[in-house]
């Protein structure tokens, strides 16, 4: 198999505080291949965005990478600083965030934003960049692209703006896209349009996509593989169908059971008792043990095994096998 586009190994992010060191991301490893969509799911605060921000060098101090390595197309990037990181971000990594306005300059026409981005990262003429800007907007489905290059961000609806952001993220032809909750603020019909667009671009251009979301339905529909995060750690990693239909980690199992589903009718939803622990109050052993119906004495002292690529699928001492979701 070809080298992955993104490779994260034992990534740990730390935030020093007055009360001690917090670890929003702890020992996380995963790869994303060219043309693959990796879905990253988990409850809010699980560390999904922190892991994504670490890859693009956008951790806000005092948060920093304390251990581990990140490679993009074979180049180690976790030690890059300042300019080198900025160049890589535009060239190799495109970003799409929940709020499209954070990625767009309100004072610049969208055509100029696209053109400038391409000129900064690609060896092409201005005329060529302007031609490609129109093509990029056409590709993401902006009607009348040739006229709309002259419009400002506020002249578009939320869904249209997110398309413009995707065009901007893709225009320098990056090999990796990090999309952090790209459809969370959008209506379902617009969400379906954006997801279809991401899948098409990934397939046609072989871009690797990290799709961060808390919506299991979006993951099922879009992702090839899924990484489930809990309290800063990777709980489960595997092909999307396997993980969602036959989860091995009790947390994934509980998560799937608590999602309303037509086939479950009006029966009570499965409840995971309690809530995800705060980072300053992580339990010893397996972080999930206070909520886990399978917890044994060993779980209270020893954390589950870490997930390595090619190793087990769940970071659990007593993983579930062949137990259908209730």
């Amino acid at each position: 198999m070809a080298d992955p586009v993104l490779s994260i190994r034992d990534l740990t992010v730390e935030i020093p505080t007055r009360y001690g060191i917090l670890r929003p991301v702890s020992g996380v490893s995963y790869d994303i291949a060219a043309g693959e969509i990796l879905g990253v799911v988990g409850e809010s605060g699980a560390g999904k965005s922190m892991a994504g921000n670490a890859v693009i060098g956008l951790l806000s101090p005092p948060a920093h990478i304390a251990a581990g390595e990140i490679h993009v197309r074979g180049t180690r990037v976790d030690q890059l600083t300042g300019d080198a990181m900025r160049r890589l971000r535009g060239k190799e990594i495109g970003m799409v965030f929940q709020d499209p306005l954070t990625s767009l300059n309100p004072l610049l026409r969208i055509g100029d934003q696209l053109t400038e981005t391409m000129l900064a990262h690609l060896d092409i003429s201005r005329a060529e960049a302007e031609r490609r800007a129109v093509a990029a907007l056409e590709e993401v489905g902006i009607p009348g692209a040739a006229e709309r290059v002259g419009s400002y961000p506020h002249e578009f609806s939320g869904g249209m703006r997110q398309r413009v952001v995707i065009a901007l993220a893709l225009c320098a032809e990056p090999s990796l896209i990090i999309a952090d909750e790209p459809t969370t603020a959008l209506d379902v019909s617009v969400q379906a349009q954006i997801i279809a667009l991401l899948k098409k671009l990934c397939r046609e251009r072989g871009t690797a996509v990290m799709l961060i979301t808390h919506d299991m339905g979006v993951i099922a529909e879009a992702a090839d593989r899924v990484a489930v995060m809990y309290a800063g750690q990777l709980a489960e990693l595997g092909p999307v169908r396997d993980v969602l239909t036959a989860p091995r980690h009790p947390y994934t199992h509980g998560l799937m059971g608590s999602t309303p589903l037509a086939s479950r009718g009006k029966d009570r939803l499965h409840q995971i008792p309690g809530a995800m622990p705060r980072l300053d109050a992580l339990p010893d052993g397996c972080a999930f043990h206070p909520r886990c119906p399978r917890a044994h004495d060993r779980c209270r002292v020893s954390p589950g095994p870490r997930i390595e690529d090619g190793g087990g699928r769940a970071a659990c001492l007593f993983p579930m096998v062949e137990e259908a979701v209730a």
Binding site: V188, S189, M216, E221, V240
Partner: peptide, 14 residues
């Protein structure tokens, strides 16, 4: 348009 938990790799025109 609503994504479903069992819609793996579904390709429908949005």
């Amino acid at each position: 348009a609503a994504p479903q938990l069992d819609s793996f790799g579904r390709e429908v025109p949005p």
